[in-house]
Amino acid sequence: MPQMAPIGWLSLFIIFSLTFMLFSIMNYFLMIPKSPKSHILKNIFNTSFNWKW
């Protein structure tokens, strides 16, 4: 089995690193966060408190 030259390992490492960073950046910027604040605020303002005392 032939051995790989050091420049081959370096280019392989760079390609995999760039691919990993590309997918990480895409995952970070393409994720659409859901905002639970509006749902919580609606429930707080719409509920009426009936105090039993």
Rank of each mutant, 00 (worst) to 15 (best):
I15H: 04
T47I: 00
L10R: 15
W53E: 14
F13E: 03
P36L: 02
S35D: 15
F45A: 00
L30T: 13
S17Y: 09
M1L: 12
N46I: 00
K52H: 11
I44P: 01
H39V: 08
F13L: 10
Y28L: 08
L41P: 00
F23T: 07
W9K: 11
W53D: 14
M1S: 15
W53H: 11
M26W: 07
N46W: 00
I7R: 12
S17P: 02
F16H: 02
P2A: 07
A5L: 12
P33R: 02
S38G: 00
T19I: 07
I25N: 00
F20Y: 04
L41I: 10
G8V: 00
Y28A: 04
F45K: 13
F13I: 10
M21C: 12
F49R: 12
F29Q: 10
F29C: 10
I25L: 14
M31N: 12
S38N: 07
S17E: 06
F13D: 02
S17I: 07
I14W: 02
L10F: 15
T47Q: 07
F45H: 11
S11W: 11
N27Q: 09
F16P: 06
N43K: 15
F23C: 06
I25P: 00
I25T: 08
A5E: 14
P33L: 02
F49I: 13
F16R: 03
P33T: 01
S11G: 03
S24D: 12
I15M: 08
W51Y: 14
G8T: 07
F20R: 04
F20G: 15
S48H: 09
M21W: 10
P6N: 05
L12C: 01
F45Q: 07
L10G: 05
L12S: 03
F29E: 08
G8R: 07
N27W: 11
S11T: 14
W53M: 11
N27P: 02
W9T: 05
P6S: 04
A5Y: 09
I15C: 04
Y28P: 03
K34V: 00
K52L: 14
